[in-house]
Design a protein around this nucleic acid. Sequence first.
DNA 1: ATGAAAGCGCTAACAA
DNA 2: TTGTTAGCGCTTTCAT
Lengths: 334, 334
Amino acid sequence: MRVRLEDVARAAGVSPKTVSRVLNDEANVRGTTRTKVLAAMQAMDYSPLLSARSLASNRSFMVATLYDNPSSSYLTEIQTGVLEACDQHHYSMMVRPLLVEAKDFVERVDALISHRRPDGLILTPPITDHPGLLARLHERGVPYASISPIWRDDTIGAFMDEPQAAREMMANLLALGHRRIAHIIGHHAHGASGWRLAGYRDALSTMGLAYDPDLVVEGDFSFDSGVAAARKLFSLARTPTAVFAANDDMAAGVIWAAGEHGLSVPRELSVCGFDDTPISRQTWPRLTTIHQPSRKMGRVAALQLLEVLRGHSDGRMVQVPFTLQTRESTAAAI
Amino acid sequence: MRVRLEDVARAAGVSPKTVSRVLNDEANVRGTTRTKVLAAMQAMDYSPLLSARSLASNRSFMVATLYDNPSSSYLTEIQTGVLEACDQHHYSMMVRPLLVEAKDFVERVDALISHRRPDGLILTPPITDHPGLLARLHERGVPYASISPIWRDDTIGAFMDEPQAAREMMANLLALGHRRIAHIIGHHAHGASGWRLAGYRDALSTMGLAYDPDLVVEGDFSFDSGVAAARKLFSLARTPTAVFAANDDMAAGVIWAAGEHGLSVPRELSVCGFDDTPISRQTWPRLTTIHQPSRKMGRVAALQLLEVLRGHSDGRMVQVPFTLQTRESTAAAI
DNA sequence: ATGAAAGCGCTAACAA
DNA sequence: TTGTTAGCGCTTTCAT
C-alpha cells in the first residue's frame, strides 16, 4: 500500500501537521524533530501525493513554458534549462506551443491557466512582449519570468546585452577590413531583431561609415528568409563583402545561397550569424557567431520565478554574458 | 469566486454526481439531462479542478514523454505530436530528458513515476528498448506507448517500415548507376541503425553486389560522426561514388567533409540521408532523404496510449508511411 | 437513470 | 514548538 503522510507521522511519533511542516520547509520545527521526521520519510520512501497537496494548498507545483518559436534547437535548450531549475525545487514543467499572432492568443493562455493552473509561467520571445497577454497576467496575478523581453522594467528573468554583442561582431568584421557590410534583420516581432540592428548601426556610425539602406534586408529568422535576403544582396550593383545575419539560421541560408551563386565563403564573402546554435557548426565553412547561453537563460529565468513562487524573494532580471565565437566563415576583406 | 461542480449541479437542478457523470462521459445519463448539464457548464464557464479530480480518482490526467535523443528537431516534432493528442483529450504532458546509459536510469524513471504519477508514458528511441525499464514498467503496471521500438510485440505505439525505406533509398542510388555505395551506421543503441543497415545489405544482395566492409563505417547519428566517417571513406584507395548515411545529420556531415576535401556534391559524390529533418533542406545541395512523419508518430502513439488510459481499447501498434524525398544531393554516377 | 454519503491525502486556521 | 479540526473539490460506493 502507498505510504501516506499520516503513516510517516505515526512512525516518527509526531502529528501529521508536523510532518507537513517539515515537508514544506516551514520554520518553527525543532532541529531534532525535523531530523526524526526526515529519517522516517527516508526509511519509508515517502513521497507526498501531488494532487492532495495541490488541492489543499491551492498550488500546482508546476510551471508552464510558453513558446512560439520556429527554432527547435533554441527551444530545446531553453526547455532543458527550465527543467534543471524545476527539478532542483521539485516542480514540474509543462510546455505549451502557441501562435502569438492568432486572434485568440490571450484567450488560449487564459484557458491554459484556468484549466491547468500553473503556479507561474516562463515566457520566451516573442510572447514576452505581447502587451495584451502581460496585462492579462497582471490582472490575474499570475507570476511569470521572461527570457530576453524587450521591456525589462518590473520584470524578472534573464537577458543578454544584445546591442553590445552585435557591436562586437561588427568590430570584428571591421577589423578584418570589411566596409560594405550587409545586415539581415530578424523577425519583426522579436526584440532581438531591433537590438541586433541597433548594434549594426552603432558600429557603422562609430567608424564614420554611412548607413546604406540597400545593404539592410528584412528576414524572419528562418533559413529560407536568409536565402531570399542573400539573393537580393547578390543582385546589387555593388555587392557586400560581408553579411551579418541576425541569427544562425539566416546566416546558414546566406552560405547556402552563396553556394548556389558560386561565391566562395569566406574568400569572396564573409558571413556571420548570432546565437551559436548547432547549425553554426554544420555549415561549411562553420559560422562565426555570438554564443548565447540559452540553456543557462532558461535555468536562470526559472530559478527567479521559483524564488517568487516559494516566497523567498521578489526575483530579479539577471544579465548573462555572451561570447564572440570566431570560426571559418569570416576572413579578411579582399 | 471559482465555480465548482456543486454550483453547476445546483444551476442545472441535478446532483453533483450527475454532473460528474457528464464530465467523465459515463453512460447512464439521459440525453436531455446531459444537454442540460453541458449547457450549465458552458454558461458558467466551468472547468474542473484537476487536483481534486486527481485526488478522488487516483489519476493525474498527465502523460510523460521520456527522451534521450541528441536531435532537437526530432524531439520537438515528437513532442508537438504528443501535445496535439493530449490536448484533444484534455490531458497534459510533461517532458523528461534522461540518460539511458546512466547507472541509475531505471531508478530515475521509477522516481518520476512515484513523484509525478503520470497516467502513462511515451517512450522514444533508444529508451523504447531498455529491457530493465520495460520490465519495471510491466511490474508496476504503468501503461506506455513506444515510438519505433525494436520489439513491437505486445507493445502499442507507432512505427515505420524502416528496412523497406532503406531499400528504396538504395534502389534509387542503384538506378542512378552507383555501384560503390558506402553506408554510415547510426548509434548502436537505436533500432533504426540496424534496420537501415539491413535495408542497405538487402538492396546490395538483391542487385548481386558484394558487401564491402570498407564501405560501411560506424557513426552515432551526430553531425561530427558523419564528418569523421566521411574522412575515413575519402581516404580509401577506391572511394565510393555515393554515401547513404543512416540519418540527415550524418549526411550533412558528409557534405561538410566533402567541402573540406574539395569534392563536389553531387557531381563527384552523391549523398543521402534519412528522416527529412530541417537540416536536410539547409545543406547545399539539399539532401535526398526519407521523410519520416515524426510529428504524426508522436500523435499516433499518444492517441493509442490515451485509448488505453481512457479504457476505450487496448491500443495497437500503428504503422505510418514514409516517402522518398529526392533533392539535389544525389545524381547519376560518373 | 439519478442521488446521498463517505472519503481521496494533504494543509489552513486555530488552539494549546 | 506542536497538535486538532475542518475542509479543499472532486469521485467512489452503494442506494434507490
